[in-house]
């Protein structure tokens, strides 16, 4: 009995201390610990904030080899929410996202470069409004570890500024509103 207990403690210790190998994570959209927000200037006087409520994605991340990290995210564009039904309807229309024709936006990573200080640059192809362009997301590694319910979680945040006109969305909101910052807060649960 003593032996068994010792073995259990040892293996538990070993497991906890073991370097984390290439791991696959599912982005925790079920528990809504992940957010895709956008921020655009209103006339140059203030910020308008909105988010996409429905998206899903996965990533893999190996602490020993961060450059092998991969991320895939698919966004249901119609789920956009700027807290104003009339504006959301307008944003979904052909003046902007044209969700009837382009219901999905996608990000597929092509490379990740860790800076060694907990930040990095995630490059990939972003498809929006039927147009695919390479983008570079500035990433901060937030943390990782056991959660209180027996799982293992890892989280990042990222930001990228895009120009909607580059994706064919050229409705004129004024000179201060030509770019949009996308902010991502992503938590993954290890599979």
């Amino acid at each position: 009995m003593k032996k068994l207990l010792l073995a259990t403690i040892m293996s538990a210790t070993f497991l906890a201390a073991a370097p984390v190998q290439a791991e696959d994570y599912v982005i925790d959209t079920d528990g809504a610990h992940a957010f895709v927000q956008f921020k655009v200037s209103h006339l140059g006087y203030s910020w308008l904030l909105g988010r996409f409520n429905d998206f899903e994605g996965t990533f893999s991340y190996d602490e020993a080899n961060p450059s092998a990290a991969k991320v895939n995210v698919t966004i249901d564009v119609a789920s956009l929410d700027s807290n104003h039904a009339e504006r959301d309807k307008h944003l979904r229309s052909a003046d902007f996202f044209n969700v009837g024709k382009y219901p999905q936006a996608k990000f597929e990573s092509t490379s990740y470069t860790a800076n060694g200080d907990g930040t990095g640059v995630l490059k990939g192809n972003f498809t929006l409004h039927g147009t695919t362009k390479p983008i570079s997301i500035d990433v901060t590694e937030i943390g990782a570890g056991q959660d209180p319910w027996g799982g293992f979680r890892r989280g990042f945040e990222g930001a990228v500024t895009i120009t909607p006109a580059d994706f064919g969305m050229d409705y004129d909101l004024g000179p201060a509103s030509e770019t949009v910052e996308i902010y991502l807060s992503i938590e993954g649960i290890r599979k």
Partner: peptide
């Protein structure tokens, strides 16, 4: 129903 969809 368009304009009141968000409770406004």
């Amino acid at each position: 129903l368009i304009s009141t969809a968000d409770g406004r």
